[in-house]
């Protein structure tokens, strides 16, 4: 790795009250790379993502994005650079705001001009019809909502995208469309991504490298090729792979 990693996590611990949810986690993600975090529920994978995003206050260790160490509070510049897409497209859009208002919010916060043109372009980029612009979230389908969430994340041109199970609440046919969209956008905008999912096939589809988590720890970090070839060393990873093949039938 010649240049500095875009995201560097060293010895991260997260506590929720008295419970120790994430234990001594370290990994790094190169610029332009997509890194996967996979594990079962309660493994701490989403917590890691939310902690990087600044949504969890109680953590120790070192986290750096683009060479800058992250403190307990994130400044506006951080949110310009790092954005997140949440799991549930029904819950992540404000129910009383139109798509237009939702997309205008980041532009207003960051004082970005030409909102009109940017919103139109953002909708086009995620392949939403122009008619969706003044609708409320409840008037859209699950897939359309997730496209709105992606458009919101990208509208202020971030370089890092955190994806928290972005397709697990969607039907498989819609999942395919959203996954294709994500890989296109990643290509076009040179995004660095961290993708959290319980689905190994989804992780393998988008990520170059991945970390397998269990009980708040990373048990193994391996490449997509190693994953597909079944060259996993840890037994938990082997179990997950076996299960994934079994369910594929």
């Amino acid at each position: 790795m010649s240049q500095l990693p875009m995201i560097a996590i060293e010895h991260l611990d997260v506590h929720f009250g008295s419970s120790h949810v994430v234990r001594d986690i370290s990994f790094s993600v190169a610029a332009g790379e997509t890194f996967g975090l996979v594990g079962e529920s309660g493994s701490g994978k989403s917590t890691v993502l939310r902690t990087i995003a600044g949504l969890n206050p109680g953590w120790d260790g070192r986290m750096a994005v683009a060479g800058q160490n992250l403190g307990p509070r994130r400044d506006r510049a951080f949110f310009r650079r790092v954005q997140m897409v949440f799991q549930d497209p029904y819950g992540s859009l404000h129910p009383r705001q139109t798509v237009d208002r939702i997309l205008a919010e980041p532009l207003e916060v960051h004082g970005i001009a030409d909102a009109e043109a940017r919103i139109a372009r953002a909708l086009e980029e995620v392949a939403l019809p122009h008619t969706a612009r003044f609708r409320y979230p409840h008037q859209l389908s699950g897939g359309q909502r997730q496209r709105v969430a992606i458009a919101r994340a990208l509208i202020a041109d971030p370089s890092v995208l955190l994806l928290d199970e972005p397709t697990s609440a969607l039907d498989v046919s819609v999942q395919a469309e959203v996954l294709n969209l994500l890989s296109d956008l990643r290509e076009a905008r040179q995004l660095t991504c961290i993708l959290v999912s319980h689905n190994l096939a989804v992780i393998a589809h988008l990520c170059e490298r991945l970390a397998v988590m269990q009980g708040g720890r990373i048990v193994e970090i391996l490449s997509e090729a190693e994953l597909r070839a079944g060259r996993a060393k840890h037994s938990h990873t082997q179990d997950l792979i076996a299960l994934s093949y079994e369910l594929e039938g």
Binding site: V172, S173, Q175, A176, L179, A201, Y245, E248
Partner: peptide, 20 residues
């Protein structure tokens, strides 16, 4: 067929997923 085909798979690598 479309439903079966559009799922990402661990066994075969595809750059894009076919959509329904």
């Amino acid at each position: 067929r479309g439903l079966l085909d559009c799922m990402p798979s661990l066994s075969k690598k595809r750059a894009r997923l076919p959509t329904l």
